[in-house]
Nucleic acid binder design. Structure first.
Lengths: 140, 140
DNA sequence: ACTTAGTTTAGAACTATTATAAAGTAGATA
DNA sequence: TATCTACTTTATAATAGTTCTAAACTAAGT
């Protein structure tokens, strides 16, 4: 592969350290996803559209799916589902909470919600994580 | 429609009071869903399979979808989504919480979880409900 | 440069769901 | 009870999101 701008080196290393060959497509997708100040939420279709819009040579749909799955398996993305039955991905992988406002999703930092009481895990199980969804409606 | 066993009258009234004509199919589906001690969770496909298994004259897929949507709109069912992108429905419509254990869903009564701290709704919005998902994993 | 295992790609296939429009039926009316 | 009509059911087609397939391509080790 042609040598890339050094500023992508961090993503190349990130991919390689997860056993993912840093192909052109994977590096570009990773850069697009992770090189930003704020974390964000997206569907694969949204990601594909916004990245391919500015490209002459398009990245294929299958590659977007493959790469997003690979990044999720490697622990760089978190998946969640809304009632419209499409997968959303979150670049914020730390345990946190969400406002759901008619299909719009807003992060809530973990420390904004604390519990007074939580149930025990059933026998033989343990708690992996606890996530809260606060559904919003308009104030009228 | 042929007169039905009186024990279904409650479901007939329930449907009629929501503006839903109590057809044979709707009454049977409602009876199947709501005439049980414990609330439960299902997908439309699961509902269809388990009801049609014991029937000579099958109810169509479209009717299962139509009826489940109608019951949801009428407020008798609650919808939620797992990461597999299929809609699950819950006959427990009261606000409550869930354990998610590898695709298996277990109800948590509302009073089993209480909060010490919760964020404000964004300006112009108010909180419709707050639901917690506790993800489980095996204890090894 | 050569090799090969891993990757990308277009397109087919699949799954859950929604739309269509023709046939059937509940319930009102006479 | 017979008739009428709007609502409902049904089989089927269509759609959306996603996964599969297998041929072409490429990163990276030799």
């Amino acid at each position: 592969m042609q040598k890339m701008n050094n500023k992508n080196q961090i993503f190349i290393d990130k991919l390689r350290s997860s056993g993912l060959r840093p192909t052109k497509q994977r590096v570009e997708i990773s850069t697009f996803l992770f090189k930003r100040k704020k974390t964000f939420h997206f569907t694969v279709e949204e990601l594909k559209n916004s990245m391919n819009l500015k490209r002459s040579k398009k990245i294929s749909t299958a590659t977007f799916y493959n790469t997003v799955h690979a990044l999720k398996s490697a622990g760089y993305l978190k998946e969640f589902s809304l009632e419209n039955n499409t997968s959303y991905y979150d670049t914020n992988i730390s345990s946190h909470h969400h406002f759901f406002d008619n299909g719009k999703v807003i992060d809530i930092k973990s420390d904004k919600i604390t519990f007074k009481k939580l149930p025990e895990a059933p026998k033989g199980k343990k708690i992996k994580n606890v996530e809260v969804v606060i559904r919003l409606e308009n104030n009228n």
